[in-house]
Structure formats: structure tokens, C-alpha cells
Amino acid sequence: MSRQRKLEVIQQAEDVTIGELVRLTDVRYSTLKFYTEQGMLPFQQAEENLTRRYKREESIRRIQWIKALRQEGKSIQQIKQMLHAQG
């Protein structure tokens, strides 16, 4: 079992795990995993241990944007189209 990094370390890290994103955004693991599987939350995967790493700042901004769009009543499909159009 791996040890969790301290929140202060996570807040300064360039790359974070999905579990660390949960701590930073207060969004459920299953929700972030769904966003990842839907191609809405990009990641890099380290081949040696298959851990997905997310760019902290970019991911937090994207998660906040997705949350705001969901609160406006946008569907997942609409959000995916908006993300695709955004590039």
C-alpha cells in the first residue's frame, strides 16, 4: 500500500493521481474515473506501474468547468462536444 502525499505537496505538484484530484476538487473518484473514460479528462500513463498522472492545474480547471456546465444542465454529450470544439 502506498503512502499518501501531504496535501501541501499535492498542491505544488505538476502531476497528480486521480486520488489526489479527488482530494483537490472534492469530486468523487467514480465521477473522475467516468470523465477519464469518456475522454473528458486527459492523462498520461507511466508504463512502469500503469499509474495515470493528470496535469494538476489543467485538470482542476477542466473539472471546475465541467461541474459548472453540469450545474447549468448541460448533458455529458454536450460537454464532450464543447471540449472537443475547444481543442
Rank of each mutant, 00 (worst) to 15 (best):
residue 80 K to L: 05
residue 67 K to E: 10
residue 15 D to V: 02
residue 64 Q to S: 11
residue 38 Q to R: 01
residue 20 E to P: 02
residue 29 Y to Q: 04
residue 56 R to M: 01
residue 16 V to H: 05
residue 16 V to A: 06
residue 53 R to C: 06
residue 79 I to P: 00
residue 65 W to Q: 07
residue 8 E to V: 06
residue 87 G to M: 07
residue 79 I to K: 01
residue 70 R to M: 13
residue 68 A to I: 04
residue 31 T to D: 03
residue 3 R to Q: 09
residue 59 S to A: 15
residue 63 I to C: 11
residue 42 P to F: 06
residue 54 Y to D: 11
residue 87 G to I: 07
residue 28 R to Q: 13
residue 7 L to I: 15
residue 44 Q to E: 13
residue 79 I to N: 06
residue 62 R to S: 14
residue 57 E to N: 05
residue 20 E to H: 05
residue 48 E to D: 12
residue 74 K to P: 12
residue 8 E to M: 03
residue 22 V to N: 07
residue 74 K to T: 08
residue 60 I to D: 03
residue 61 R to G: 13
residue 13 A to I: 05
residue 76 I to R: 07
residue 5 R to L: 12
residue 60 I to L: 02
residue 43 F to Y: 15
residue 57 E to D: 13
residue 51 T to F: 12
residue 31 T to M: 04
residue 4 Q to D: 13
residue 23 R to L: 06
residue 11 Q to G: 00
residue 65 W to E: 13
residue 13 A to N: 08
residue 34 F to R: 09
residue 50 L to R: 13
residue 17 T to S: 15
residue 30 S to E: 15
residue 33 K to A: 02
residue 18 I to M: 14
residue 2 S to P: 03
residue 79 I to H: 03
residue 53 R to P: 06
residue 7 L to T: 05
residue 77 Q to D: 15
residue 27 V to M: 08
residue 81 Q to A: 02
residue 19 G to A: 10
residue 59 S to F: 09
residue 45 Q to T: 12
residue 15 D to Y: 10
residue 55 K to I: 11
residue 23 R to C: 00
residue 44 Q to N: 06
residue 57 E to P: 01
residue 2 S to F: 01
residue 25 T to F: 09
residue 5 R to H: 14
residue 44 Q to G: 14
residue 14 E to R: 09
residue 17 T to Q: 01
residue 36 T to E: 15
residue 27 V to W: 02
residue 61 R to T: 11
residue 48 E to G: 06
residue 66 I to Q: 13
residue 5 R to A: 10
residue 10 I to A: 04
residue 45 Q to C: 15
residue 8 E to A: 04
residue 5 R to N: 11
residue 57 E to M: 04
residue 64 Q to L: 10
residue 17 T to R: 00
residue 86 Q to L: 10
residue 63 I to T: 08
residue 1 M to W: 00
residue 54 Y to G: 05
residue 68 A to M: 10
residue 27 V to H: 03
residue 42 P to E: 08
residue 6 K to N: 09
residue 1 M to D: 05
residue 1 M to C: 02
residue 66 I to T: 14
residue 83 L to E: 09
residue 59 S to N: 12
residue 37 E to Y: 02
residue 16 V to N: 03
residue 78 Q to I: 04
residue 61 R to V: 05
residue 33 K to Y: 04
residue 82 M to V: 10
residue 80 K to E: 06
residue 29 Y to K: 07
residue 30 S to F: 02
